[in-house]
C-alpha cells in the first residue's frame, strides 16, 4: 500500500517538475499512437464503408479476416513486423526497425481492423432507405459518403476511441519493433516495463498513472464531443 502511495506522490512530483524525460516519453506515446490511429482511420473508414455497402467476391472472407484482426494478439503483430523489418528481412532495406516508424506501422496494423470492423458495423446500422432516398435525389458519391459518415458519427467515434485505446496501451509489439530506445522509441508502456525491471517501482507507478490519466483525458474529450452531438 505504501508503495502505491509513494508511486502516486512520485507521479505528481514528476508531472509538476515537468521532468523532461518523462514529458518526452509521454508526448512520444501520444504522437505515435495518435498518428497510428489517424492512418488507421484514413484506410479503415473507406474499407469499412466498402465492406458495408458493396457486394463483391471474397467479401465475406475479407469480413472474417477483419473480425479476426480485431482480436489478433499484438505480440503476433510485433513478431511478424520485426521479421519483415529485420535487415535480413524482405523490407530490411528501409532500415525501419527500432524507429518510431516501426511502432506506428505495428500500431496501425493493430488499429486498422478495429477501425474497419467498427466502421462497417456503424454503416450497416444506417437505414437502407436513406441510401435509396439519397440516390433518388441524385446525390453524388462524395456527398453520399459525407452523409453516411455524419449519420454514423457516434459509432465512428467509438471506433476512434477503441483504436486509440488499443494502441496507446500496447506494450509487447511496441517493445519488439521499437526496442524501447531512450529518446527514440521509449513510450509510456515500455518505460513502465523497464522501470519495473530495474526495481524503480515508484517511477513505474508514476508512469502508469500518467498513462492512465492521458488515456482517460483523450477518451473523455472524445466522449464529450460524441455526446454533445447527440443531445440537442
Amino acid at each position: 500500500m505504501e508503495l502505491i502511495w509513494e508511486g502516486t506522490t512520485e507521479a505528481i512530483r514528476l508531472l509538476l517538475s515537468a521532468n523532461p524525460q518523462v514529458l518526452e516519453i509521454a508526448v512520444l506515446s501520444l504522437e505515435l499512437s495518435g498518428l497510428a490511429t489517424l492512418v488507421a482511420l484514413v484506410f479503415g473508414v473507406p474499407m469499412g464503408a466498402l465492406l458495408a455497402f458493396r457486394v463483391f467476391p471474397g467479401r465475406r472472407f475479407t469480413v472474417s479476416l477483419i473480425n479476426t484482426g480485431m482480436g489478433v494478439p499484438p505480440v503476433v503483430v510485433g513478431l511478424f513486423v520485426s521479421i519483415i523489418l529485420w535487415r535480413s528481412g524482405p523490407l530490411g532495406f528501409l532500415e525501419l526497425l527500432y524507429t518510431p516508424g516501426a511502432i506506428v506501422l505495428a500500431q496501425f496494423i493493430i488499429a486498422f481492423p478495429v477501425v474497419t470492423g467498427l466502421t462497417m458495423a456503424a454503416m450497416q446500422q444506417i437505414d437502407p432507405k436513406l441510401l435509396l432516398q439519397l440516390k433518388g435525389i441524385g446525390a453524388s458519391r462524395p456527398q453520399l459518403m459525407a452523409v453516411l459518415l455524419w449519420e454514423a458519427r457516434l459509432p465512428m467515434l467509438a471506433a476512434v476511441i477503441a483504436g486509440f485505446g488499443a494502441v496507446i496501451s500496447e506494450v509487447g509489439a511496441v517493445m519488439m519493433v521499437g526496442g524501447n530506445i531512450l529518446g527514440q522509441t521509449r513510450v509510456l508502456t515500455t518505460a513502465t516495463v523497464l522501470e519495473t525491471r530495474k526495481g524503480n517501482f515508484e517511477v513505474a507507478i508514476a508512469l502508469s498513472l500518467i498513462l492512465l490519466a492521458l488515456t482517460f483525458l483523450i477518451t473523455w474529450l472524445l466522449t464529450v464531443f460524441q455526446q454533445r452531438t447527440t443531445v440537442r
Binding site: L65, L91, E95, L96, T99, P100, V104, L105, F108, F112
Partner: peptide, 18 residues
C-alpha cells in the same frame, strides 16, 4: 493488406530515418 503495409512503410521511412 500487403500493399497497405508497404505504403505505410514508405510514408514513414522518410520521416523516421536519420
Amino acid at each position: 493488406m500487403g500493399s497497405l503495409v508497404v505504403l505505410v512503410c514508405l510514408l514513414f521511412s522518410g520521416g523516421c530515418g536519420d
